[in-house]
Computed example of a mutant assay.
Amino acid sequence: MIWKSLRELPVWLRFFILGRLIKSTGSLAWLFMAVYLVHERGLDPTTAGLIVGANGVGIIVGGLSGGAIGDRFGIRRIMILSHLGSALGCLLIPFVPVVALGPLIAGNGLIGGMAFPLGMALVAGSIAPEQRRAGVALSRAAMNAGVVIGPPLGALAAGYDFRIVFLIEAITSIATATIVWRFVPPPLVKAHATSKGPSLWRAVAADRTIWMLLLAVLAVDAAYRQIFTGLPLMLTDSGTQLIGYGALISASSALIVLAETPIAIKLAGRPALKIISLGYVFIGLGFLALAVWPKYGGAVVCIALITIGEMLYKPTSAAYAADRAPDGMQGRYQSLYSSASIAGMVISPPLGGYVYQHAPTLLWPICAALALMGAGALASTSLTLRARSELEAESSTG
């Protein structure tokens, strides 16, 4: 069944997934940017941190604005321009004076930040609704595979000449743009905003389900991101070498590459909100395991449970956001969803760092509570939708 479902996906999606893999493998500049700025450009760590932070702000602004621009001028067209603009910025970084690095890197983050929600909107808007979860899961699998492959290659390149890192990212961006231009069709729904339909905010405000999903994603992703902030701090403080932490993250990424798409296909017919809620429950249980057993063994259990939860909720929620999008708003709905997730990523490190510094034993219970509250909120929404649909069915037959 799984292989049959994969074969039924459109041929162009295979090329798009290849592009995702290439781009993810080559997305190295952000990973080594702080080291480059300090060791190659002579900046102090504080200034380098501000510039890297400017790149993050640019990514957030790009993610928020990219959907509206894509809906107005064409999702596929803007995605191609985003990758080409990002490639140009990467080629310029090694050659511009230090004073221009901040604006250039922030602008590059903005332009490149448009591509992620547009890519999700392109997949979700160009394939049949029943195939969306599998398509999103395949796209995520390709990106996770790139995360496994890319950093070691980037480290080798940086050890030889840092300019190679930027060249690799530029080449992979151009390759991805070429694949999208040559093989990927425009979305089935023409995404051109007009003044006739409802505004984005009116559409979202009228859809309780989508804003409940966005709030849940913000809270749960803020908790989930603590595996990248609080967890390595806890492990190193308890005497674990960083290689042990790295092995956990690598194993998680490898499992996602292997298992997420088959799981998405198996569960494609199940109600989305129930699958997302179940994923949140696994996230909460993972953090509870860490609260009870704050050692490396607990971290192994935590990452295993959280990986299962991630495979359940992430592809399903992105596809569900596409399912709820009105005609012509695919890009903006994906921008909203991505921005909620990114906002969780932004607030998680400072808040988690503060809690870990002043009350470390509270961090994991708080994360568990956020995930379980998100699960409860979406489960309640699912029950409300089911009751409403049953009432409508009774009234129509009666």
Rank of each mutant, 00 (worst) to 15 (best):
G284I: 00
L167G: 10
S348H: 03
A141Q: 13
R386I: 14
V52F: 02
A191H: 09
P262S: 09
F287P: 04
V52A: 08
R133P: 06
N108V: 01
Y36G: 01
P152N: 09
V346P: 01
A124Q: 03
V99A: 02
V346G: 00
V189C: 11
P315R: 01
G398H: 12
T176Q: 04
T240P: 04
R14S: 15
G113H: 05
L385Y: 06
S195P: 07
V35R: 05
Y354L: 15
S195I: 15
M33S: 07
I69F: 15
V220H: 04
V61G: 05
A106D: 04
Q330G: 15
A254K: 00
Q330I: 10
G239E: 06
Y313D: 02
D207K: 14
G67M: 08
P262M: 10
A247F: 10
A371N: 00
A223G: 10
A299D: 01
A175C: 08
K196S: 15
F95G: 03
I243E: 15
G297I: 08
S389D: 15
T209Q: 14
Q330K: 13
P94L: 11
L351F: 09
A145M: 10
I263Q: 02
E260R: 02
L248N: 03
R14Y: 14
S341R: 04
E169K: 08
G58S: 04
L9K: 03
I111A: 12
A368F: 00
I342P: 00
R14C: 12
S253N: 01
P10I: 12
W3S: 14
G53A: 05
L290T: 05
T397H: 05
L122D: 06
I263R: 00
A222G: 12
L81D: 09
L370P: 02
R76H: 12
A137C: 02
A115E: 03
V165A: 00
W12H: 10
A318D: 03
A106W: 01
I111N: 14
I263P: 00
P271D: 10
